[in-house]
Write a protein that binds this DNA or RNA. Structure first.
Length: 305
DNA sequence: CACTTGACCTGTCCGC
DNA sequence: TGCGGACAGGTCAAGT
């Protein structure tokens, strides 16, 4: 799914809702979806009961949730956890991959009929993998049709299990850094190269096509053909694509919904992604779909050269 | 080494 | 209507 703007949208939604709430129960319907730091099923979910949500954050496409140190009197069974000694709190990492959703229900969400939530129907549903219950009886559902996504329980500050480059919305992401990282892949088409999370963290297939369009660059252009000017324009193009994505609440093709279950509208505003056959918004030429690095790629054959 | 393909899963859509 | 194949937002491992 979810690329950076979609995860950012979920983060902003959850920050308003679950900070300070205490977890009372976790139901794991799909053990594969709830893992320890080694990627094996995490068997001690009961040890998370009694913890409060301290912080919700995002790095690239990963959502993090820092939980308090356990309150011993409430959760004796934490001692069955290998990390029980010297408990400094716990962090949950969420990766939604292709089809994951995180939907918060505090009873106000109108399940099953809201114009923007019709697609969800009732929760839990057959794609619900994990359910968090909070002390105010609200719930957080982790749904994931394809089960590529995961929740990992790690120690606070423990490394994210993905090699990540600069965070594009932070100051560290300059055009010079982008150039340096892209040059790791001199002969790769530029669109494929910016999908590498160590080049720039958080760009996925939708925003990679959009970024190339914004920069008026043919996505097939090899990295070593790019001039410094191209690098600067591409840097701006990446930022514009991501910021527009956040502005429109993310992109929904099939699965993405925000933490209230609402779809994102970025695809209505996307310039090329999923627009094959439609006119280019710049010059009216028909948008083409091609395959690059095995992924669908969209471009205007006229103004992206 | 650089790059591509396959695997992980489930669902949908399209052509025969 | 049914069936096979292609394809779908991500990422890592294995293969070329």
């Amino acid at each position: 799914m979810p690329e950076l703007p979609e995860v950012e949208t979920i983060k902003l939604g959850l920050q308003k809702k679950i900070i300070g709430l205490k977890i009372t129960k976790i139901q794991i319907l799909s053990p594969k979806s709830f893992q320890n730091e080694k990627g094996q099923p995490f068997d001690y979910a009961q040890g998370l009961r009694g913890r409060k949500v301290l912080k919700v954050w995002r790095r690239a496409k990963i959502l993090g949730m820092d939980l308090t140190r356990v309150i011993l009197s409430e959760t004796k069974d934490i001692y069955s956890s290998p990390s029980a000694q010297n408990d400094k709190g716990v962090t949950l990492l969420f990766h939604l991959k292709m089809s994951g959703q995180l939907i918060y229900d505090d009873g106000k969400r109108f399940i099953g009929g809201h114009p923007t939530t019709d697609m969800l129907g009732k929760l839990p549903n057959s794609h619900t993998r994990v359910i968090f219950e909070f002390s105010d009886n609200s719930k957080l559902y982790f749904n994931d049709q394809r089960r590529f996504g995961w929740i990992k329980v790690v120690k606070p500050g423990e490394g994210i299990p993905i090699t990540l480059g600069p965070e594009p919305l932070e100051k560290e992401f300059t055009w010079q850094i982008l150039k340096k990282n892209l040059l790791k892949h001199k002969n790769m088409p530029v669109k494929v190269a910016i999908l590498d999370q160590s080049v720039v963290a958080g760009v996925g297939n939708i925003y990679a096509s959009e970024a190339c369009f914004n920069a008026k660059l043919d996505p097939r252009t090899k990295v070593n053909q790019l001039t410094d000017k191209d690098m600067k324009i591409l840097h701006r193009g990446v930022l514009k694509a991501l910021r527009d994505g956040i502005k429109y609440g993310g992109a929904t093709r099939a699965h993405f919904v925000d933490s209230e279950g609402k779809k994102g509208y970025f695809l209505d505003y996307a310039k090329v992604y999923w627009k094959n056959g439609k006119p280019c918004p710049r010059d009216g030429t028909e948008i083409k779909k091609i395959t690059l690095g095995g992924r669908g790629t969209y471009l205007c054959p006229n103004c992206q050269s």
